[in-house]
Design a protein around this nucleic acid. Structure first.
Lengths: 240, 240
DNA sequence: CGGCGTTTTGATCGCTCTCAATTTTGGTGG
DNA sequence: CCACCAAAATTGAGAGCGATCAAAACGCCG
């Protein structure tokens, strides 16, 4: 409850209380950051690992033509680069999409804790695997789904992820992403995102209204978009 | 020389001879597999880690409509899922694109070796990071580049990767991918891939002829596609 | 209340898909 | 070595999805 990261890891693989406590001990004091702030910039030497505790962020690249492509959304409990610190410099940037609360973990301390607590390392590995699977799902969307399916699929993903961390209430999710941002994530223009959202709304599938996402007919939405949430919550193998 | 994986790891972070030897010791005897064979299928419980020693493979998903989306190409030295074995089942398939020679490593043995040789684990981590960066670059291409840039960018990536493992001779690369496969990777129809390749050929930028890729004007190609190879070969940080 | 960014809607353009047919290539068996 | 076959490459014509350009309405924050 007190920490979105702990909660998330726990959801992957139950952690002993003393392990949670050890992890909590090396997480820095949270700090608040405003919306639209770069947490890490392309070209930076990666420093400490950043954890999102509240709010949303996104990984993105700016192309020579000035267009932006978002390749991932980060929600509470997500980490900005578990092991990027072995690299010399970032190949993309990460910015907050909303005001956010973040904390940091020193890589050396996390590494030491991994050595002491293999279960923790396994939990982080799983998190990393889910991230990778999400990247692949993104590629599938961009390559083989039309605009209606793309928008719907992304909303399905965000909804399921939000649900898992307790951000969904009454079947509704606070949706801080503008249509511009959604377009930057899906390779669409904001104008077209708008038309797609209207279509989904008029067909009674889902709507974004007043900054709130409501999925009216999840069955129909899943059918339209081909959404299959298994890539987000695969179970751990029984034995090591 | 004897093993593409060792060679690749060595390129990332020089390994002591005895470490290489230990790794080599747990790699199974290579076996030959024909082209278009699934090495792993979606839904399978992941077993041992597979290493490509010769030939090309690809990760892919089949969508409900029957279309295929490829999300990665695997070349000699690449691994089919370093840590996927913590998951219950594969969320995608991997198939050979050419006749190939592969070997396997038992996860438990690799894990034990990681514990004994941190440098080896770091090398594998780096490999994993490059894979992730490649996925992100793929997303950027799909979202923000037109067909000409997409095809050119993919060829740049494959060329650089092939170069690094000694597959390029006289500025030429044996290119086993059909236009159908290229289309499945880039979200384009084979017909359009064909037209794009013709344009690139007529403009004297690059050509695929007789199963061989030749980059005639790499500067022009990089300019057209916005290719920046830093995501493929970032240097390790000096100190831990 | 003013201003700016976002959302919304309309009209038109163009890149890529679709459908279709032909040519070329590579592999196989006689 | 040649005939044959299937798969891949190539080219053409036309359609459609999403982009672009433009403008108006809305909402939020100072």
């Amino acid at each position: 409850m007190s920490n979105a990261l702990l909660e998330k890891l726990h959801g992957y693989a139950p952690l002993a209380p003393e392990v949670s406590a050890k992890l909590e001990a090396i997480i820095s004091k949270p700090r608040d950051v405003p919306a639209r702030l770069d947490l890490m910039s392309e070209g930076d030497a990666p420093g400490e690992m950043i954890v999102i505790l509240e709010g949303w962020a996104a990984r993105y690249n700016i192309l020579p033509e000035g267009t932006r492509q978002i390749s991932a959304f980060l929600m509470p409990g997500d980490c900005c680069d578990l092991h990027v610190s072995v690299l010399a410099e970032m190949d993309h940037s990460i910015a907050t999409m909303t005001p956010a609360r973040v904390a940091t973990i020193k890589r050396a301390e996390l590494g030491a804790l991994f050595d002491a607590e293999p279960a923790l390392m396994r939990a982080f590995w799983w998190m990393q695997l889910v991230n990778e699977a999400t990247l692949r799902a993104w590629i599938v969307s961009m390559g083989r789904r039309d605009s209606l399916q793309r928008v719907g699929h992304l909303m399905c993903e965000l909804f399921v992820r939000a649900e898992r961390i307790g951000l969904v209430a009454n079947g509704q999710l606070e949706m801080p992403l503008t249509q511009i941002v959604i377009g930057d994530a899906l390779g669409l223009t904001p104008v077209h995102v708008n038309r797609v959202l209207r279509r989904l709304r008029l067909e009674g599938v889902m709507k974004i209204e007043g900054g709130t996402l409501t999925i009216a007919d999840s069955g129909k939405l899943a059918r339209i978009t081909g959404f299959d949430d298994t890539y987000l919550h695969r179970r751990l193998q029984r034995a090591a």
